[in-house]
Amino acid sequence: MAGRRPIGALENEILGVLWNSDRPMTPSDVLAGLNGELAYTTVMTVLGRLWNKGLVERVRVGRAFAYTSAISEADLSADRMRAALDRSSDSLATMSHFVASLDPATQEQLRALLKKRSK
């Protein structure tokens, strides 16, 4: 059912692998982390793109580069997008959010639930 994954999804998968590791990873390490689902060259290309965006740092290890994630260095996106995000939730109404904004009552309800669980 997965089918071919969209190009945009590759960066996320590869960054997910880097986030999972404590040490710098070479492209072949990343490839192993992906269970070999991608071609080596694809991994290289995507890592290069992540590096251009400042989402990863790299150090030379022998003949290859090893990559680590570097969120704090990342380029922030264009103003246009930020404006869309700031404007209102309307411009985001048709997007799938990780967690929607909650009203105070629901937050309270969730807090109570967490407290009950931790007991």
Partner: peptide, 30 residues
């Protein structure tokens, strides 16, 4: 709504106060 995010490719990090995370469908998408 999607036109605001045509430039999204892979991961895009934005500097807004709200903790947002969402998927932008399409090709490339991200």
């Amino acid at each position: 709504s999607r036109d605001n995010f045509t430039e999204v490719e892979g991961i895009t990090i934005v500097d807004v106060e709200r903790p947002v995370a969402f998927a932008v469908p399409g090709n490339p998408g991200g």
